[in-house]
Design a protein around this nucleic acid. Sequence first.
RNA 1: GCCGCCCUAGCUCAGUGGUAGAGCACACCCUUGGUAAGGGUGAGGUCGUGGGUUCAAGUCCCAUGGGCGGCUCCA
Length: 690
Amino acid sequence: MPRITLPDGSVKEFDRPVTAGEVAASIGAGLAKAALGAKVNGELTDLSTRIEKDATVSVVTAKARGATQPDADSLYLLRHSTAHVMAEAIQRLFPGVQLVYGPPLETNFYYDMAFPPGVSMSTEDFARVEAEMAKIIAEDRPFTRYDVPVNDGMAKLKKEGSKYKLDNAERAVEAGSSALSWYATGAPGKDWEDLCRGPHVPSTGKIGGFKVLSLASSYWKGDETSDRLTRVYGTAFATKAELDAYMTQVEEAKKRDHRVLGKQLRLYHIDEMVGQGLILWTPNGAVIRQELQNFIGEELRRQGYHQVFTPQIGKLELYKTSGHFPYYQESQYPPIIDHDQMKELVTEECSCGELANRLKSGEIDGYMLRPMNCPHHIKIYASQQRSYRDLPVRLCEFGTVYRWEQSGEIGGMTRVRGFTQDDAHLFVREDQVAQELQGCLSLVKLIFETLGMHDYRVRVGLRDKDSAKYIGDPKAWDSAEQACRDAAKSFGASFSEEAGEAAFYGPKIDFIVKDVIGRSWQLGTVQVDYNLPKRFGLEYIGKDNTPHVPVMIHRAPFGSFERFVGCLIEHFAGAFPTWLAPEQVRVLTISEKSEVYGREVLAMLQKADVRVTLDESSERVQSKIKAATEMKIPYLLVVGEKDAEARAVSVRARGFQENLGAMPVAEFVSTVDREIRSRGKESVAQRFGK
RNA sequence: GCCGCCCUAGCUCAGUGGUAGAGCACACCCUUGGUAAGGGUGAGGUCGUGGGUUCAAGUCCCAUGGGCGGCUCCA
């Protein structure tokens, strides 16, 4: 006889096996009505799940009582159920479509499908699909599970002829399933059904708000060489209001997209004629980059780094030694070869394949646009004899690198073909690794704290032991991986260890943030490397008067300026703190009568090295305020005759939709100057008690 | 690179076979107005590029460049 423990700790006893739905009903009729599913012993299930033994049961509702947010489990159930409804609707409209896999996601769901040859769906079909879905939902058909023994189930699938579902079933059996389960939307054997593990909400009527979002494509099992599938995205909520709120939120997020703001605030430009993925930093964006560089530069000097400058190309020999060429050939710009060799090859009518072979064999030499800065820095280290007393040697450079990313994955500032890393390479003794790693991590921490970025995750990238792409001795890898793990632990934040995420020469600690549309980007990175020093034969003379191989640490706390600024634009929604803002202050004159004074205020701010402009156009102040507000300028100073007389400025600070009041101009200059130099620790707004 | 969609004025977009449009921005004139758009006039486009179909193409077809969303990839 099952004893059911409820989330509040209370226990209910039943004298017979019960369903999760009955448990829900026993808690309260209102709750049962709202119930979408249940969790039995922590596992998400249907309300129809039978409970025969003692269990802990909680009820999944669209919105737990008192909660303002729907709980994640309810949305999982709802979205997966909506995926079934969508699949049925699409199969009705497009006969012959085969289903593959339709999981729920954090904010939406998709269903991968194989369309028959010559048949495809377009965004124009969404309305029809949604109309079909609405019918199914209006019918409020129950999701009914039924189990079939493995052999019978396989036979059934074979008969139906879906190779994808058959494959899903085979994998389920491999994973130990003793039976295969189907979910009918309605009555088994009569209504539409799908091979599915579940669970589902009780009936289609529970789906309150839904939408077909987009079309994409995918590969079967994620394999590039396998079948190409059509992926239809949609989303669902318990109510139409929640769907609308979500759609509004998506619209708002789009306004914060760095590609939109980049144009609106004139931060950067990408020109077709220059090339895909090559960022042109316009004056406004350049200010931000320069300020970030100054900020980190100050810190590097404090921490004993030495600035170096190195060229953006190097001979193939350099990259053959480092291991980049030819193993990463397809992700690099092709080598540059000299004029005479080029002429010779042309007259010989040498094919590209032959050229590649000759470059590979070393028969002809060439230069490469560098994909990384490390080989150049390594050569600086190697350029003189080093003693153990000299270590650590910390060489830093804002180094520009070029990588031939696939055209389809380039976009905005976050994935580009040329970018500048805030790079450094530390050559250290083995006993210094731990401390130096900590130093590197502290830089990352400083950056995130100064910029108020708290929403990031930490990943320790380890090698995939089955993969052949990593170079070096497994023992060295083990110690490097342990060093990363230890350093990540000491960092304080939680982190995940992920195999297969290491660089080809060593493990790393990455800092990852999400953009406005939910994609993850790696920013800062710290990598331990026992391999490249060996490949380049680096050494230092130890205390024992014999040569030793140093350990290298690669680190870039921002990652790259391009990607970092792209994420930063979204983080601040374009409203940069005053120290980073391209235009920090704008002076707005009320009429021609205040022009002379306006110019005087402008000059005072310019003298204090504040980035300031003067708007003395013949528009009204209201219009000038609107224009300046759209450019997200931190401070607007309205100056009219009254202000001129009082030698004051009327301050309007971004974020406050009002005139904060007048302040003597000299005081504003000194206050804003302190705000800028303290990087926001003080502010003009504070002076007004805001 | 692959699949799908998109590309019209500086920007945002309307225009689905019959002589290119709007708003904002820009220029000039009027207006001198105290905290999110004062008024008028004007200039600005070989409709991404190259082919094709048609009496006629921004509109239909093919190719190509670029963008977007996925996928794959990301030292």
